[in-house]
């Protein structure tokens, strides 16, 4: 696996830059995720094209916004099926923020709307007497070591969310916000972050670098 220096542009040979499909379902700011993956050495494409997604070494489901409209947009573009297929065939998959929440079966934010159901459980409102959304930098507490979190330790990362994934064995990192809150998921090939790595300065870029390297290594084996 190639070690890249954080912030380096990576080399420009297309062969050594793994194709990462960033699912484009037309909601809000998805470009930042694409540009930060590019910065970390990926050939990152913002796309809804089934062929390109099938070809990708890794798939990223980014996003900001609300569960209902985002799920509707995923279904409208057929990307719900693409996301399920990519997760099922064992390719490295990364959900970001609402992209994490969409992986679950449903959310209290949109009762009656089915999520992707890639991970079991229900996304619930942040409990307790806290400001919602949590809109701040917060410190990670790593519970389970994972290649995704390599080099992050107790890094500070940027959160914007009002709902959170269920606490389960696949929660690899938490943050404290009126109690422990699921911050990162590592479930076989399916990874996800409640925070925005593309907006979390150096530690965020490191996480994306970990993902790109992992996707590249997995593609080389496959």
């Amino acid at each position: 696996m190639t070690r890249r220096i954080v912030g380096a542009q990576g080399d420009t040979s297309a062969q050594s830059r793994p194709l990462i499909a960033v699912l484009d379902y037309g909601i809000g700011n998805l470009r930042s995720a694409q540009k930060s993956l590019e910065r970390m050495g990926a050939d990152a494409r913002l796309t809804a094209d089934a062929g390109l997604i099938a070809e990708a070494a890794g798939v990223v489901l980014p996003g900001v916004g609300a569960f209902g409209p985002c799920m509707a947009a995923l279904c409208r573009t057929g990307l719900d099926e693409q996301a399920r297929a990519a997760a099922a065939d064992g390719r490295p998959f990364l959900g970001i923020c609402i992209g994490l929440q969409l992986l679950y079966e449903e959310s209290e934010e949109a009762p009656g709307v089915a999520g992707l159901g890639i991970l079991p459980g229900v996304v619930r409102l942040l409990p307790g007497n806290v400001k919602r959304p949590q809109m701040q930098w917060n410190r990670l507490g790593v519970r389970v070591s994972s290649p995704l979190l390599e080099g992050l330790g107790d890094a500070w990362v940027y959160f914007v969310h009002s709902f959170a994934a269920p606490m389960a064995d696949n929660v690899a990192a938490v943050c404290e916000y009126g109690g422990p809150v699921a911050a990162a998921i590592a479930d076989n090939n399916v990874w996800a972050t409640q925070f925005h790595p593309e907006k979390s300065a150096r530690p965020g870029l490191r996480l994306l670098e970990n993902f790109v390297n992992h996707a590249q290594a997995a593609a080389a084996v496959a």
């Binding site: 806290v130 400001k131 949590q134 930098w137 943050c175």
Partner: peptide, 13 residues
């Protein structure tokens, strides 16, 4: 109205 306590309450610059 009771003001919710900020959970982490980390300030931003």
């Amino acid at each position: 109205m009771s003001r919710p306590a900020a959970g982490g309450g980390n300030a931003r610059i």
